[in-house]
Design a protein around this nucleic acid. Structure first.
Length: 155
DNA sequence: TAGGCCATCTGGTCCT
DNA sequence: AGGACCAGATGGCCTA
C-alpha cells in the first residue's frame, strides 16, 4: 500500500463523517498504475477496516455493559473508557473487601450492624446511595474510594 | 479556542 | 493467506 501513497487521500483517516470506506486504498487501486495486483490488496484492506470497525464496536458494547453495572454516583455525564476501567477496578476491590469482611463476621446481622448502625435502625438506606447529614459523599462512594478527577496514570 | 474523548484508517505483528 | 489484535495518526465533536 505504501507505493500508492500519493493518490491516497490524506482525509482517509478520521472518516467518521464519511463512513465506511470512501477513497483510501480502494480508490487508490482503481486509479494507480498496476491496479490489478493492487485490487486484491485494496479489497483485503477494506475487509480489514470493516473487521476492525466491528471489533471496536464490540469493544464499545462491552464498555457500555460495564458502565451499566459500575456505580456512577449520580454523574449525568457518562464515564469515559478510562474512567470506566478505573471505576470497575475500585468497585471490584471494594466488593472483594466487603466479602472478606462478611466472612470474618459470623453472621449477616453482625456485618450489617458494622456498616449500617450509624444510619439508624428505622431508616437504613442502601449503602451505595446513603449519605449522612454533613457528609460530602455517599457512604458507598467513600467505601470505593474512586474519584474521577483524582486518579493518576499508572507508571 | 484549547483540550479531552472518540471513531476510523492504517501498517505491523502474531497466530491459526 | 487471512484474521485478530495493537498502536499511531488524524480529524470531528463537545465543553470549559
Amino acid at each position: 500500500m505504501k507505493s500508492c501513497k500519493p493518490c491516497n487521500p490524506p482525509a482517509a483517516a478520521g472518516a467518521r463523517a464519511a463512513p465506511p470506506c470512501t477513497g483510501g486504498a480502494a480508490e487508490c487501486a482503481g486509479t494507480c498504475a498496476g491496479a490489478g495486483r493492487l485490487e486484491s490488496a485494496a479489497r483485503r484492506r477494506l475487509a480489514a477496516n470493516a473487521r476492525e470497525r466491528r471489533r471496536m464496536q464490540g469493544l464499545n458494547t462491552a464498555f457500555d455493559r460495564l458502565r451499566r453495572v459500575v456505580p456512577q454516583w449520580g454523574q449525568d455525564k457518562k464515564l469515559s473508557k478510562y474512567e470506566t476501567l478505573q471505576m470497575a477496578l475500585s468497585y471490584i476491590m471494594a466488593l472483594t473487601r466487603i466479602l472478606a469482611e462478611a466472612e470474618r463476621f459470623g453472621s449477616e446481622r453482625d456485618w450489617v450492624n458494622l456498616h449500617c448502625e450509624h444510619f439508624g435502625r428505622d431508616h437504613y438506606l442502601p449503602f451505595a446511595g446513603a449519605k449522612l447529614p454533613g457528609e460530602s459523599e455517599p457512604y458507598g462512594q467513600r467505601l470505593f474510594g474512586f474519584q474521577p478527577e483524582s486518579f493518576q496514570m499508572a507508571s
